[in-house]
Amino acid sequence: MTDLDTLVKQFQQKDINAFEKLYAMYSNSIHGVVYNIVRDSAISDELMQDVFIKAWNNAESYSSSKGRFFTWILNIARNAAIDKTRSKTFKQTKQNLNTDFFVDIIASNDNLESKTDAIGIKKYVTQLGEKCKTLIEFLYFKGFTQKETAETLEIPIGTVKTRNRSCIQKLRDMVL
């Protein structure tokens, strides 16, 4: 059993310290995903809190056989953020959602200077090809299906999988 498995088990048994550790591990990532969808700092703060509280309250419904713990929270976060963008009040205040992708946010993110791997990631996104941008944006940040992604990029659905791997492979080369 890995450390992560143990941590998740403790989290499911309502261990607040385990929760805090998991939060430290994933909160920035989840925040980034949510922010990329709603593009509002205050709203994404609020949403991310909701997401983690929801995860805490429904902890027993997670099972490692269903996927990674991070993936589980990622799904909750994407759904919450997308629901938010569909809500009436959100539509009224955010008529023109920025069409920028995650790469633009990262490229212009001043906050990154303090983070490790920041330079690598910034370099990575500036070098990233259009297809990779769309693939990662859709499959990972927005949670679109492979079919939707394939249709937008006008590539065969089988290609989505391999192309996506090579895009992420480049990222790994930069940050690890």
């Binding site: 994933y26 990532s29 925040h31 980034g32 922010y35 993936t71 993110n109 990972y140 992420i168 990222l171």
Partner: peptide, 16 residues
């Protein structure tokens, strides 16, 4: 997972 979490963490404007 590590690569992707780092990538998305970079899209976060600030820590919470």
């Amino acid at each position: 997972e590590t690569a992707l979490t780092q990538l998305s963490a970079s899209a976060s404007p600030h820590a919470t």
